[in-house]
Structure formats: C-alpha cells, structure tokens
C-alpha cells in the first residue's frame, strides 16, 4: 500500500506544474491506485448502516433504489443489503475502473468512499 504522507511533495510539484499550464496540464497527476489507500484514513470497522448504505444511496440511489424518480434501473436496488453485497464487483468496475457510473456528468464516487466500501467487503459485510 502506498503511504499518502510519502507522496505529498510529489503531488505538490505536480500541482505547481498544473498551475503553470493554466489548467490544461494535470493528466496523469495520480500516484496510487484507487485501492492503495492509507489504511489509517479508512474506518476500521465500517458498517452497512453507518458507512456503506449512505454512500451507495448518495452516489447510486437516484436510479438504483426503489423510490427513484426514474424507476428502479436494471432491477438493481443498491440500497438493499443482500443485493449490494453481490454487486460490489460490478460497482467497482463501473464506478471506479470505467468511471461510467453514475452516468453522464453526475458526481463520481471518490476513491476514499470506495475504500470504505472495500473495507466493509473485506471485513465480511457487518450490518
């Protein structure tokens, strides 16, 4: 796992570089994979109710919940504990690798938020 604290100076240099190029620069500014998150920054024991459900609801609930305005898309209710448990690989692929979900220009899931969900998965999905 990459330690974020070790990477700050490098990030600062890239930030300054981007400033020099007035916003066109910055591609490739990333340092670590979205999975390489500092363990200290993620809750040790995330739970479904406190940590995972609010995040899935926030990013996905507009389409993937029973009371979505547009109707439940793809029959996938990500606010349901059992459904969400088995959809994690798909969530990772679409939200974090392809970045195709949420669709369009809606706000994408942050790496930190996915790290919390991933930790929950690793810990055996505590409720």
């Amino acid at each position: 796992m990459g330690r974020i604290a070790d990477l700050n100076a490098r990030s600062r240099r890239r930030g300054l570089f981007a400033l020099l190029f007035v916003g066109f620069a910055g591609c490739g500014a990333g340092d670590t994979s979205y999975l390489d998150f500092d363990p200290a920054s993620v809750p040790a024991q995330p739970t479904w109710a406190n940590d995972v459900l609010p995040r899935l609801d926030y990013y996905c609930g507009a389409c993937h919940s029973p009371d979505a305005q547009v109707g439940l898309q793809e029959g996938l209710d990500l606010t349901n504990y059992e459904v969400a448990k088995f959809a994690l690989l798909d969530i990772e692929r679409t939200a974090m690798i392809e970045r195709s979900m949420p669709p369009g220009t809606a706000q994408k899931m942050s790496a930190y938020d996915f790290a919390v969900i991933k930790r929950w998965d690793k810990n055996g999905h505590p409720k």
């Binding site: 990477l7 500014a29 990333g30 979205y34 970045r99 942050s110």
Partner: peptide, 11 residues
C-alpha cells in the same frame, strides 16, 4: 483532478 494522490480519477 479531485485527488492528486489517486491514479486516474481526473477527467
């Protein structure tokens, strides 16, 4: 780039 320390989250 919402997070400099995360790879490929820029757009």
């Amino acid at each position: 780039d919402p997070d400099f320390e995360i790879r490929d989250d820029h757009y």
